[in-house]
Structure formats: structure tokens, C-alpha cells
Design a protein around this nucleic acid. Structure first.
Lengths: 192, 192
DNA sequence: CCTCAAACATACGCTCGAGTATGGATTTTG
DNA sequence: CAAAATCCATACTCGAGCGTATGTTTGAGG
């Protein structure tokens, strides 16, 4: 798709820095985004960075905005294409469960919720997703008041699972056990 | 119970430093534990600190061990005193929901799960709590395989709620709405 | 091929926080 | 009360990381 880590492209653009920063965020968190470290990883020096960005803060900001803008839509639009509302939620659960890769950034940002640049982004993204769940539950036939709470509960379970499994690696779970867990979630949280 | 923040005790002990560190962790996270900042808060200088601890890492370690050791037992022992297993879980949910203060440290540590000193502590604590939930569900009459998954789901919901509400402050929820949410959790996650 | 702006390198200054060295003050104890 | 142990202050070093200043390369258009 584009240049890899080391010395394929001769000149870099601001977008290259932003994507590299996002990779670093996904792997080591927001705090690990250091200018000189990124420069080494891209095969250049600070001199390059400070041409593209005014400050380190600006890079983080641009990366987060980029993530919020381009890193979402896919799954939601796929789910919205499913005609029967009652099939949507189980399908959503299963797909999210088997594509944990794109959630690496989200999991990393969860650990930086107090960061002033991260907070508003995560507030917007989480809010949107919960509202999506909310309408999905209502369209599946659940009364509004209950649907809202169920959406909150579902999303909390998602967030908690990310934390416990992704970062902590707990519980040590096999592939089959995981599938059983997902089905248990579906049976418990989605009305028949 | 003991000396407060500023200048009541003339001499300090290692425990004083550990408790001060835990307060700081609860309020600003593990990353905010800085030696000189803590010293100012306690009304002394670094010279004092490095008599009690060999390094900053040692303080963090001691604080975490202290938290793991003394900071738990209360709620669990209270719940275990309830005779009827079917009443335990709803009671647990309600008490946990209305005593969010002692969970500040846990919520802060969730944001530092990648920290090498935090990881093992959180793994142990979370594992213990999930096993407690597991047996509670089994004693309430749930089949073992289902009970384990339900325990995972419940604890994930707890963790996720901490993150979304505590740190992010989302969703903006009133006291009454919160109670309704807790009852919804009980109705959804606990078998009749 | 020449030029000029974009893209990068090099070398610096600055701040912040951890850790050390050493001496002074304050208890505790024989 | 003297001495020894405990507790703390002051004054440093040192490395990491951000940002700046200024010179150097590269490549696309005239």
C-alpha cells in the first residue's frame, strides 16, 4: 500500500508521520510517541519532523483526527446493510469478535483517557458507537428505556473485554473457549 | 487515622510515602508518581525519600503490594456473609455501584496495564475477582460452563463501566438513571 | 542545466525528573 | 548526657526528550 518502515520512500509527507504515530500508539500507547524515536523508525532525523509539524502535540492531534475520520466506518456500514434488524446484532458481535486487530488503537487510547487530546476524541467515538447500539436494540424490538441501558451494558462489556484480554492477556483463553464466550454474550445480551 | 498531607507528623515512615503514592495514583495515575512532587506534598524533600526507598520503582512496587494486600477484602467478606446465594449477586452489584470511591485506584491501574510493575498485580486481582463471581454464579444455580462465561461478561462490564464513566465521564448520567442502569444489569446478568 | 522551494541533517539549548553525595538535625538508647 | 541510629536538607550530576537555528541535499519546472 505504501512505504514500509525503512528507507523505501525517499521523501516523507505529513501523512506518513501520522500513520507511523498511529502504529506506535497501537503498539506502545500514546505516551510512546516520541519525535526522535519516530524519526529513527522512519529512517530520518528530527529536522524532517519539524518541517511537517509545528510540535509533537500537533502530530498527536493530527493522528487522532486521522484515526477518528478514516478508522471507523467499515464495520458499521457493513452491518447497516443487513436488512433484518434481528440479525444485525449477533452479526455485529461475531464480526467485532473476530477482527480485534483494528481495535488495537482504541484499546491503547482507553489507557490514555485522561490525556487532554485523547478525551474528546474517545468521547465522540464511544458516544457514536453506543448510539448505534441503542438504535440497533430498538430496531430489534426492545423498548427505548431498556435499549439505552442495554447499549450501555453491551459497550461496557466490549471495552472491559478489550482491557482485560488485549492488554492484560487475561483470562488465558483458547480459540474455542472464546467462541463460546461470544455466543454466551449474544445469548445473554440480545433478546430472543 | 494518621497524619494528613501537610506537616502534622514531624518524621515520616515508608508507609506514609506508600499511602501518599496511592492517593496520587488514584487521582492522577501511576505516571504522576514523581519523587519531588510527592516530597513537596508531604512537606519534605527528596533527601527524605531516598532514605526510605532505594528508587522510585521501589516505591511504586511497595504501594501496589500494599494496595493488593490491604485494599481488597472488605466488600468480598461482607458479601460472603450473606447466607442465601441468590441474594448475594444483586447485593454485590448494588454495593459496588454505590461505593465507587475505593475503585479509583483500580480504575487508574487499568490505564497502566502495560506497565511491567502493574501488570502482574492487576492480573492477580482481576483473576481473583472473576473467580469469586464464577463461584457466586454457580452457587446461584448456574451450570459451570455458563457460570464462567457469565463471570467474564460481568467483570468485563464492570471494568468497561469504570473506564467509560470514571475517567471519560461518559455517558453523562443522572443519579436516577444510574440506579436504573444497575437494576437493568441485575435483571440482565443475574438469572431469575 | 539552473534555480528555488521543499525536505532533511547537524548541532545546539533548555527543562524536568531520577539518582548521588554529603552534611546537619532529631530521636533513641545505653 | 553522650553516642549512635534515624531522618531530612542542600547541592550537585546525568540522561531523555522537546524545540530551535542554521546549513545542506533533492527534485521538479523554467
Amino acid at each position: 500500500m505504501n512505504a514500509n518502515a525503512k528507507s523505501e520512500r525517499t521523501r516523507l509527507s505529513a501523512e506518513d508521520w501520522e500513520e507511523a504515530a498511529l502504529r506506535l500508539i497501537a503498539e506502545q500507547g500514546v505516551g510512546a510517541v516520541a519525535v526522535e524515536a519516530l524519526a529513527r523508525q522512519l529512517g530520518v532525523t528530527k529536522g524532517s519532523f519539524y518541517w511537517h509539524f509545528r510540535t509533537r502535540e500537533a502530530l498527536v492531534q493530527a493522528s487522532l483526527e486521522r484515526w477518528e475520520l478514516y478508522g471507523e466506518r467499515e464495520i458499521i456500514s457493513q452491518i447497516e446493510a443487513i436488512p433484518d434488524p434481528r440479525v444485525r446484532l449477533p452479526e455485529l458481535f461475531r464480526r467485532v469478535a473476530h477482527e480485534l486487530q483494528p481495535h488495537r488503537v482504541y484499546a491503547a487510547l482507553l489507557k490514555a483517557l485522561d490525556h487532554p487530546q485523547v478525551t474528546p476524541v474517545m468521547a465522540r467515538v464511544s458516544q457514536r458507537r453506543m448510539e448505534f447500539l441503542n438504535t440497533a436494540y430498538r430496531e430489534a424490538g426492545m423498548p427505548p428505556a431498556e435499549a439505552l441501558n442495554r447499549a450501555r451494558l453491551t459497550y461496557a462489556a466490549y471495552v472491559g473485554f478489550l482491557q482485560l484480554n488485549f492488554t492484560l492477556g487475561l483470562p488465558r483463553i483458547t480459540h474455542e473457549e472464546f467462541d463460546a464466550y461470544v455466543e454466551h454474550m449474544i445469548a445473554t445480551l440480545i433478546p430472543a
